[in-house]
Structure formats: structure tokens, C-alpha cells
Nucleic acid binder design. Structure first.
Lengths: 217, 217
DNA sequence: TGACTTTTCAAACAAGTGTTTTAATCTACT
DNA sequence: AGTAGATTAAAACACTTGTTTGAAAAGTCA
């Protein structure tokens, strides 16, 4: 048992390598389809290392999630922005969300892992919703509520928040279809910026008009 | 080899049972995670039956897709509707799409299989896009174009079409998250109708306003 | 250095996968 | 009834999966 081993440099190195590799592989294949052998190989470690350091595949998965949570702690509060009007805050939220999902830099697997957990939930979903998704949804719902005006119900704000998120996440979930259906669309940084601009504009327009038609329903 | 066996009643019965069971299991677990043993058991057939009748797991998968295509042939054209204005056609499209995805009746697996292929593409995706997705996208894009007015570019119509689809499909892909995040929302028929009404209203409003702000970009 | 723990590694294990085999059963036709 | 072909069924096969094992290597501290 390695309980006092957290100060060891070498073992920590393999633990870190394992975590990083696991993040990528889990994000790419999902929990079930990912294999500990691919993770171990990618980390340059032995197959047994996963069981030794994390007690098994599931332990590794949870450790990856804990790491991810630590990395993005307080990101929702930061999203709030201060001294900005509603339109700007919505634009910021949308752009930040998309960058989080489509970023290719360090820890690109974090957003992907989060998104995958949405469609293939594991036991880690409850914690994920509580720690990361709920706070962000709260921010977005607040923005929607402000845009919809005082007459809007909580129900309407929730529907609109889901519409905003849905528009964005569609580009992630349906990527294979989109690339086939719209060959001109490219998923690079400039493409994502265009998506952000459209979603912001579309949603802003939608909620403004939504508000004016409030008596229609 | 069973080549002249298509007239046989009994064998056809097991083939049909196998196809039906496979549709459900593939839709629920995806191609890779589905097991031929679960399919066989569900169909009340032997494990070897899959290989005997369809040449293997992949052959069965493709047969399931061919069956699904046959079932929903010409559904896009029917969606066009005639003698209806744009708003009504959008409402019809949205409602039809959602019913297709969330229907619980016979062949409920068809929509689920289609949706799963979006996120976990196999070799069947190209055919699926060509046969089913492309035609429907075409209809929706036409509606969007009409709503956006003559000044709108093809690019804008495509973005708006993706926004409409994204709003709806989000309820499918992120179902585990939505049920946790919005405990009051229920996925029954009445819930789906509410989604359809909201998406239609939100998108209609979005595109109308989008159109008016055409010079802003 | 030398005992002690921690970590690594190759090998093997048990369970589950799709597929094949082989024989038994059923169906259809004369 | 009898024969040939089509279908079913049980068993085994080859392979991959996560996990365990036992010994070798590396590190730690006196």
C-alpha cells in the first residue's frame, strides 16, 4: 500500500503521467471503452501501475475528475463579470463556454470529459453536476432572466438557458455529422468564434422578441 | 449459406426478431458496447444465429440500418407540408423531429440509433447522413432562409438551422444532466410538447430579430 | 553498507467478447 | 418414408478486458 508515497518524486511523476494520459483517453473513448492498457502505454508505465496507484480503473477515473475539478474551480464566478451589461455578459459566457469545450491547449480533455459524462453518465455525474454544471447554469439562467424581463417565469428562463447551451453543445456532440453536412465549416478557432457570435446574436434576438410576445402564451 | 431462405417463414421470423432486438440494444448501448449475446437472448435465439443470418455483428448492424431507412423513407418530403406558411412549417418540423427522437412506441429505437450515430459514428454514418439527415436539413434550411428574408446569406441560414436542431437534440444528449439540473422537467409527452412550443417560439423570434439586425454584421 | 519499504515489471488469471465448429433438428420436396 | 438442404443449438476457440501475483529494482534511512 502506498499511503505515505505522495511525497515521493518518482511515484508522483508516474501518478501525474497516469492522470494526464487517463484524462485524454477517457475523454476520447469514454469510461467503458477506454482501456487501462492504452492509458498505461501512453503514460509510459506498466499496466499494473493503475491498480497500484489508484486501486483500479474506476479509482483512476474518479481521481481524474477530482483533478479536473481542482483545475477549474471558481470558473463560474469568474464568468459573472462585473460592470458589464447583460448583452456583454451573455457574449462572454458563450465565448467562454465554447472555448472550454473546444480548446486544444493544455488539459483539453477536461471539457471533453465533462461533455462525455453528459451522454454516458457514470457515478461521477452527480458530483460533476453539483460542482461545475449547476453553478454555470445558475449564471446563465440569471442572464436569461434579466434579458426576459421581470414578467418572465422561472420556467421560461430555464427553457431559454437550455436553448443557449443546446445550440453550443450541438457543435460538440454532432461534430461528425456537421463536418459531413457542412464541409465548408471548419472547427478551428476562427470557426468557433463565428459560432460564438451567431449563438449570442441568435439567442439575444430570441429572448428580446420572446419578451415582447409575452402575452401570446 | 442461406441465400434462398428469404421465403422461409421460420427463419424469417428469427431474422425479424433478431433485427428488432438488435435495434433496441444497439440504440441503447451503441455498436461497440452492445453484445451479440444480449441481442440473441432478447430475440430468443442462439448466439450463433447472428453469424448465421447476418455474417457477424457488423452485418447485423448494417441490416438494422437498412431496415430503419426503409421504415422512414420519404419522411422529409412529408415534412414539407403544403399550403402552410413558414411559421406553421417550422412548428411542424420541430414537433415532428422531437416526436421522432422521443417517441416510445413501435420502433422507438430508430430515432435513438440515429442520434447515437451522431456522437459515436461508425461506417454507417455516411449513408445515414445521405439518406436521412441531409434531406431534413435541407427542409429546415429552406424554412430558415425564408424566415431570414432575401438578404440573408446561405451561411446565416445554415447557422440558424443548426441552432434549431441543437436546441432540440440537447434534450436527448444531455438527458441525464437535465433530469438532475431541472427536477421539475419531465420527459413525458406533455414535456416534449412544451419543448416543441418553446423551441419554435424562441427560434422564430430569434430569426425575425436576426433579420432586422441584418446590417449589424 | 544493509535492512526496510516503496515502486516497477513481466507474467498469468478470470471473465467477457465475437466467432467458429460440429452435430442435432427441422423443413420441404419426391 | 426418405433424402437433401436449411436452421438451430451447445460447446469450444481466439482474443481482449481489468486485475492479481511474485519477484526484481529503486529508493530511504540507520
Amino acid at each position: 500500500m502506498a499511503k505515505q508515497a505522495q511525497e515521493n518524486q518518482l511515484s508522483e511523476a508516474t501518478q501525474q503521467r497516469l492522470l494526464e494520459a487517463a484524462g485524454e483517453v477517457f475523454a476520447e473513448h469514454g469510461f467503458k471503452a477506454a482501456t487501462v492498457r492504452e492509458i498505461s502505454t501512453k503514460a509510459g508505465a506498466n499496466v499494473a501501475a493503475v491498480n497500484y496507484h489508484f486501486g483500479g480503473k474506476e479509482g483512476l477515473y474518479k481521481a481524474v475528475f477530482r483533478l479536473a475539478h481542482r483545475c477549474s474551480h471558481g470558473q463560474a464566478e469568474q464568468m459573472m463579470g462585473s460592470g458589464l451589461n447583460v448583452e456583454e455578459r451573455l457574449g462572454l459566457f458563450v465565448r467562454g463556454f465554447l472555448e472550454n469545450i473546444f480548446c486544444e491547449g493544455q488539459a483539453a480533455w477536461h471539457g471533453k470529459l465533462m461533455t462525455r459524462e453528459m451522454t454516458e453518465p457514470t457515478s461521477a455525474l452527480d458530483e460533476l453536476v453539483r460542482e461545475e454544471i449547476q453553478p454555470r447554469e445558475c449564471v446563465l439562467e440569471g442572464i436569461c432572466r434579466e434579458l426576459l424581463g421581470k414578467n418572465a417565469t422561472k420556467d421560461q428562463a430555464e427553457f431559454c438557458a437550455r436553448s443557449v447551451i443546446g445550440q453550443m453543445i450541438f457543435y460538440y456532440h454532432a461534430r461528425p455529422v456537421i463536418t459531413r453536412l457542412f464541409p465548408d465549416f471548419e472547427y478551428g478557432p476562427e470557426g468557433i468564434v463565428k459560432v460564438a457570435e451567431h449563438v449570442t446574436r441568435f439567442s439575444l434576438a430570441g429572448m428580446r422578441k420572446y419578451k415582447d410576445e409575452g402575452r401570446g402564451r
